[in-house]
Design a protein around this nucleic acid. Structure first.
Length: 194
DNA sequence: TCCACGATCGGCT
DNA sequence: GCCGATCGTGGAG
């Protein structure tokens, strides 16, 4: 298994997004590792009204204008963080939101980061963008970290067959609702919705 | 300064 | 399916 190289992240965002499915997101926490297979993503483009970067650079979104391969974590709804991977060319302001992962390593630590109610299904641990960020303890301090570094990175894995990838509209936005820029692995219980 | 709103979640109907 | 929690951000005034 090897790290995704810079050249993976600097291509066109809509090419990258479905290819991220099946790849392994890894975060080093002390001596331990948290890892999970990416099962659901959404693409956000610079000329896309739903994209944070659409109206230009601000203090909040400036990390989104970094070069491809940088992690962009933002705070929303007064209580949640969501994590994105900056894509395409530096200065463009495009990214892919990680909406859900299937835990592989460090599940106990994830459950410590994000305690579940007694009767909760295990898949609710990471089946949403804020849930994933909470379980992996990704917050403002993680924003701007280069995924081509050694603390947080993504491991290559075989591509998901196109017939197993569902393409739909994005969730939780009020503009550009019709863009089919959400991608998830079919029949994977860890994806957030069907 | 002020204020409307958000790439969500969980609980309730 | 609907609603409240909760607060940083940025555009308006």
């Amino acid at each position: 298994m090897k790290l995704l190289p810079r050249s993976f992240y600097t291509r066109r965002t809509l090419e990258i997004a479905p290819e991220l499915l099946g790849k392994i997101f890894v975060k080093k926490e002390g001596r331990a590792f948290l890892s999970g297979k990416i099962v659901e993503v959404e693409a956000y483009l610079h000329n896309d009204p739903a994209c944070h970067a659409f109206r230009g650079m601000t203090e909040r979104n400036k990390v989104m204008f970094s070069r491809g391969g940088v992690l962009y974590v933002y705070f929303t709804y007064g209580m949640y963080f969501c994590s994105n991977i900056v894509t395409y060319k530096e200065g463009k302001g495009e990214a892919v939101l990680i909406r859900a992962v299937e835990p592989i390593e460090g599940i106990k630590k994830m459950m410590k980061n994000r305690p579940l109610p007694e009767d909760a299904k295990v898949y609710t641990l990471t089946n949403g963008p804020a849930k994933f960020s909470q379980a992996f303890h990704l917050d403002k301090t993680s924003s701007g970290i280069d995924l081509c570094g050694e603390n947080i990175f993504i491991l290559d894995a075989p591509p998901i067959s196109p017939k197993d990838i569902i393409t739909t509209t994005r969730i939780g936005i009020n503009v550009a609702k019709e863009k089919p820029w959400r991608f998830y692995i079919n029949n994977n219980p860890w994806a957030s919705r069907k």
